[in-house]
Computed example of a mutant assay.
Amino acid sequence: MMSRKFQTGQAMAEFSISIPFLAPIVLVMIMLLIQWATIYRDKMTLNAATFEAARAGSLNNGSKAKMRDALAQGMVPIFMRDESSALEVGRAYLMSKLYVEGSAIAKAGAQINILSPTPEIFDKHKVTRSGRHGNRWQEIPNDNLMYRKSDAKKITDEQHVNIQDANLLKIEVNWCKKLEVPIANWVIGKILTLTDPSPNPLDAEFVMYSPHKHQLGCNALGAIAGAGSGYSDYYISIKSYALIRMQTPFKI
């Protein structure tokens, strides 16, 4: 029978041999945890900014320009590098503004989609208004909603919407979050940039992942952003939704 002392020494020797193989795996896991923590932080910031964007839209006739401005203001924290500097706040706001509504490349990084009211809902509930100077426009009426008839109008065979629900503004915001943690950005990025995976589970190229439309835009943004440095940057698409009642008539 082996002595306890000999067994302890054998275990230490086996552990020492396994360290070179375990260390890279542990390092990758730590980097992945840090990267997912930054993604979660930016997702929480995006949730708050999306609500502010929806609120701005509800107060300004569903204006996308106002929503983009509110979104840019809400996303300033993720561009901050030194919170004690007033100049840094201005720089971060300009960076966020450019990302949301700047060049054609930057616009791929942030998208605001109005999910409701849709053009079909607008057409069914719109009314024509006239101004003092003879100008005319169309809008979804927003006044005295509690006294208006709640009869639902047919939008599609599966969708019927009344005037009260037509005044609910729902938006979706897609944001390309840059992956910045070393090692983890490459691991996650290689998965996100997979092209033409095989749908056959028996195929060596099979993966249970297919990037959606906005993720493909984030992949393109990463390729363009990293072109000058000779390697590709990696971005992951994160989404947020907000629903709020219109406080002004919705216009298109």
Rank of each mutant, 00 (worst) to 15 (best):
I78N: 00
M67N: 08
I140Y: 10
P211K: 01
K154W: 02
P20I: 01
T248Q: 10
I252G: 01
I30Y: 00
F51A: 04
F122H: 06
H212Q: 15
K239Q: 13
K124T: 05
I236M: 12
K153A: 08
D233V: 01
H212P: 10
I114M: 12
Y231H: 14
T8K: 12
T248P: 08
A204Y: 08
Q247D: 12
N142Y: 02
R4P: 04
T38F: 01
I105Y: 07
L221Q: 07
M75I: 15
M31G: 00
K5T: 15
F250Y: 15
Q7C: 03
A23N: 05
N174S: 15
D203Y: 07
K213C: 03
E180V: 00
Y241Q: 07
A220E: 12
M146N: 12
E83P: 09
S116T: 14
E158L: 10
N135G: 09
S3Q: 06
M29R: 01
T118F: 12
S85Q: 14
R129T: 05
G230L: 02
R41T: 01
W36Q: 06
S130M: 11
Y99A: 07
I19D: 05
G102V: 06
I252S: 03
M67H: 02
L192V: 03
S198W: 10
R245A: 04
L46Y: 08
G9Q: 12
Q164A: 12
D151H: 09
G134Q: 08
E158D: 14
W175M: 11
M1E: 07
L59M: 12
